[in-house]
Amino acid sequence: MKEDAIKLSEQKGEFRKKVEDLLPEGNLDLCLTCGTCSAGCPATGLENMDARKFLRMVMYGMDEEVTTTPWVWMCTMCQRCIYACPMRIDIPGLVYQARASWPREKRPKGILGSCDMALKTETCSAMGASVEDWKFVVEDVLEEVRETQPQFKDMEVHIDKVGAEIFLNQNSREPVTEAEEMVPLWKILHTVGADWTYGAKGWAAENYCMFLADDKAWEEIVRRKAKAVDELKCKVWLNTE
């Protein structure tokens, strides 16, 4: 006996309903199943999953599989799939929502820990660098450069200079693990005569709460950083990347 075709409009996954609400432009029915997404994706095949398959599983209402596969942590949400998709379907958005559907404490420890560390540190540093650590490292490294490299004896690095044109952020990796890597950046800014400052607070460039798919925490971190920039009345928030 011939089986009836599966009607996608009749599949009723909770996850699908949720993402349809959240992705107003992402009419998931538009997928042509062409596979352009998975053909150019480095995550294809990991955990026996790929972007096209993941989308089909959402469509079929396979909630259990979609919300438990660790594959969502193996896709970086780099957006190459949506860039290549002829229908512009937001697969990374689905991946983000699938991450968010994991109980918070079950999400990967490293990402969770980095987000929580940033939340409890004024600097927003995922590595837990405090205001004091930060000031000490910057001053210490600067002093050494001034002493050992005569052409930079007058180089300045400000922390909390109100009204500077530029507020520069910095990935925690530098002050915590490779402080000398900040020096070439300072030298460039010094050479062009830039009017810039670091903040004592909110300078850390990373935001793991975003990767953790914790909307509230993500927003909290961004607001705290933006506030630090605003408080110093800087015009430009400059990313070192």
């Binding site: 150019g40 480095p42 660790p70 942590w73 193996m74 896709c75 970086t76 949400m77 780099c78 190459r80 860039y83 290549a84 990967p108 420890k109 490293g110 990402i111 820990g113 980095s114 793991y208 990767f211 953790l212």
Partner: peptide, 16 residues
């Protein structure tokens, strides 16, 4: 159109 290197999205901290 570049490929992602695999360092983003928290991959380096994810344990995978």
């Amino acid at each position: 159109n570049n490929y992602c290197c695999g360092g983003g999205g928290g991959y380096l901290q994810s344990g995978f």
